[in-house]
Design a protein around this nucleic acid. Structure first.
Lengths: 200, 200, 200, 200
DNA sequence: CTATAATCGAGACGGTACGTCTCGTCTTTAC
DNA sequence: GTAAAGACGAGACGTACCGTCTCGATTATAG
């Protein structure tokens, strides 16, 4: 509300260019339909109808339905999945993994992430975009989270952050992909096994 | 019961004569096309054309392309991914995880598994079948591998086989899903971290 | 009745070759289905199912569904549509045309004839067979009916039997084809207009 | 109303823009293919391919191939088969019947009419549409042609126009349906027999 | 009194066309 | 120059029948 964030929020009516209302209607319709009908039931025509928007308006701004989902994911993940920086590295990691588990199993945006991981298996070109726009930056963020622990002396420099990141997030994401529960103790055990020997 | 030769099945009365050549042609064509064109480029019409088979012949025996892939996966995974039983439980596990990594990154059938995990994110009904026909039995097999270590006294009874299985396979599968390398040291570290404290 | 007509009539049980029960079951099933579902709804598979007969058994004896219909038509038309020979040529003609109108509008076999006339418009090869096996002999029979009137002196030798035949049967068949009623007076007027000036 | 240029149609409000080129391409392709391959060899896929049009474009505007043929028939019959009004009623009738015979035996659109009469025998629902859209109006037009002769005093009021129409057109159409020749003398005889006694 | 040969029910098979769905492009009209 | 509307070419979907082809099993004659 306060300082008007870049896009200008179309107060009253759009000035002349891209219709912000249409953009939001598309993103919300996509989210809703993904939850209701799953990825395979999600079609551009369905999104257009639900959003009350012409198909061409979607194609003007997004190359495919995957790109719409990527946009919602990046917006939502940035908001729902920040890396905590307030406590110790160990505790930050624990909090982050718990948030990740919650995000994947409870948040509709988590379903978007799972769907995109799925689609990456089906389309190599899409996989490339997905890596560039989401997976690689996300991985980098997570490695930095661990790296900060090394830098502060909390973790041993011998810790392989790349390997540790996958040892920690891999089981959580795999459980989400297979619809399995992810209890706190499961996360705690992962952290203990992966990080305890590197604690100073 | 007694002399039961190879084919079995047709005891007493012919099950009305499915063409084994057609069945194999479809499975092989599907495998080939998945590698060549990816899951999204895989069509029933394409499979039929490549296999030299009528579309209806496919629909007669498989409800969808996913079911064809499941059949090839189950056949190939059974062959390529046996649980070793010759060495210690620890060593068997190591060998199994290495075979899994190789299967996922090198074997065409590993690509089938990744594609099916992907599709399970897009279609809940398919996910159910996939769990029943592949994931659940596979998970059970893997848990039994660890359980035999407990039974023989090699692992502590405190080992949670369900959690350990996911801590071991989760990172490997996640790396395969994201196209990352899976070096031996990565696997060895997983095993060490997950199992060492439960070694007798 | 008397001297056993060639086929031998399968008393008790077929002697060795063609199964007369199957033949009749096919003919009856075809007739029934034509009435129930119309020509376009008539399929070899449907006939086989209704007759309780294998598809191959039909193909063994008839090249197509049209040939089955031709068989039933020839059998039924011969029975239902004899040329009367008992009265004067004029009266015989009147009776024949009335029987023709009744056959076409009331008898299921009349529907077979209309269907075959229809199919002849759709398939030139079929039209040829149809002419050879039904239309030409039938036309010949009808011309002979008129010719007998000339021979006996009842009609003038100037009567063009070919043209008269079509002037008489054409309107009746056309009305049947268009589902129109064919009252007696319509037939009587046709006869009067076509034949009266050639009456001796 | 005033300056109305060639295309007209879109007055006031666009009827939402059907592609006239596509429409004509379909009608012509259908005509051509009917002549080349007969009704049974005519397929929607074949028409689409020949017309260079997507199958869906055909289905958007026509429910079936029969409806395409009806459209071509109505357009062509209106053009090729006008009721002459310049001479006496008797002469107009003669000219009309000659044009009808020529239309049925020489004009490709005549083949369309024969095919549709044929198809009406195979499909009751189609027969209904065919009557409503072509046969009934056509019959009405032909009766009016005769009625004008009565009105002008050329024909006796006792003339049954319905019966006379069928007595005249029935034999011509029947001959066309059976592939027979239709010489002028045949038509002249029909006219003489049917109408002479009603001439004033 | 076998065997041989043809028929029969059953139904899988390679095909073709069906009518539907959704894609991504395009064109028109209105604001 | 963006937007709603929607026709268009393209092509895969899953279904219905086509006509051909085994596969046992049945059964009357011919050896």
């Amino acid at each position: 509300m306060a300082t008007d964030d870049g896009t200008r929020a179309t107060k009253g009516r759009a000035p002349h260019r891209r219709d912000e209302n249409a953009r939001l209607a598309v993103l919300h319709a996509t989210d809703d339909l993904l939850v209701e009908r799953s990825f395979n039931g999600l079609t551009i025509e369905g999104i257009a109808a639900r959003a009350g928007v012409a198909k061409q308006t979607i194609y003007r701004w997004w190359p495919s339905k995957v790109d719409i989902l990527l946009d919602t994911l990046i917006e939502d993940a940035g908001r729902q999945l920040p890396v905590p920086e307030t406590a110790s590295a160990l505790e930050n990691t624990r909090r982050y993994l718990r948030a990740l588990a919650r995000f994947l199993t409870k948040d509709p945006a988590g379903m978007v992430l799972l769907a995109l991981i799925g689609e990456a298996q089906h389309d190599p070109a899409m996989a490339k975009t997905f890596h560039e726009r989401y997976l690689d930056p996300q991985r980098q963020t997570e490695r930095e989270m661990l790296q900060r622990g090394i830098d502060s002396g909390e973790f041993s420099p011998a810790l392989d952050t790349e390997a540790a990141r996958d040892a920690l997030t891999g089981p959580i994401i795999y459980r989400a992909l297979t619809g399995a529960k992810i209890p706190r103790t499961f996360i705690d055990t992962l952290i203990t096994n992966t990080l305890e020997k590197h604690l100073a």
